[in-house]
């Protein structure tokens, strides 16, 4: 699956090419989250998963208008702009969102904890809702 990062400037370009992509995942970070949300709604089923990283959204959309797809919400525990306490309202507005707190990271959480963020995003893109079930082995000695 292709993952696309959305921002307000490239949303139209993404919308234009999305029919050729088949199934894709959208990623919106900080102030780019609003564009990713709008695009996810506009592209419908071909957007298979949405990832919102420390989303800065103006007024939160009504839950009825939320895109109907698995949504991963990543919040840094040290983020003063979108703190972990924002998870409740964000999840109320986006009923299919699942928050994951990125420990020790501020607003730029993808840069501050790149391995942790990459790992959870890759897992979510690959398995979507099923990503809450552990599939890595814990066997110590085969």
């Amino acid at each position: 699956m292709v993952a696309l990062a959305a921002s307000s400037t490239d949303a139209r370009a993404v919308a234009a090419i999305s029919p050729q992509l088949g199934e894709f995942a959208l990623i919106g970070q900080s102030s780019g989250a609003a564009a990713a949300l709008a695009l996810a709604r506009a592209t419908g089923e071909s957007c298979a998963a949405l990832i919102l990283i420390a989303p800065v959204l103006g007024p939160l959309p009504a839950a009825a208008a939320a895109p109907d797809m698995p949504i991963l919400l990543l919040l840094g525990t040290e983020d003063a702009r979108v703190p972990p306490s924002a998870a409740d309202a964000l999840c109320a507005a986006l009923p299919r969102a699942h928050p994951i707190l990125i420990y020790g990271a501020g607003h730029a959480l993808d840069r501050e904890r790149i391995e942790a963020v990459a790992a959870v995003m890759c897992d979510f893109i690959a398995r979507r809702d099923k990503f809450i079930v552990r599939d890595a082995s814990d066997l110590l000695y085969p």
Partner: peptide, 9 residues
Amino acid sequence: QPRPFGWQG
């Protein structure tokens, strides 16, 4: 946290 959440520590 009032809702289910995950932790990537």
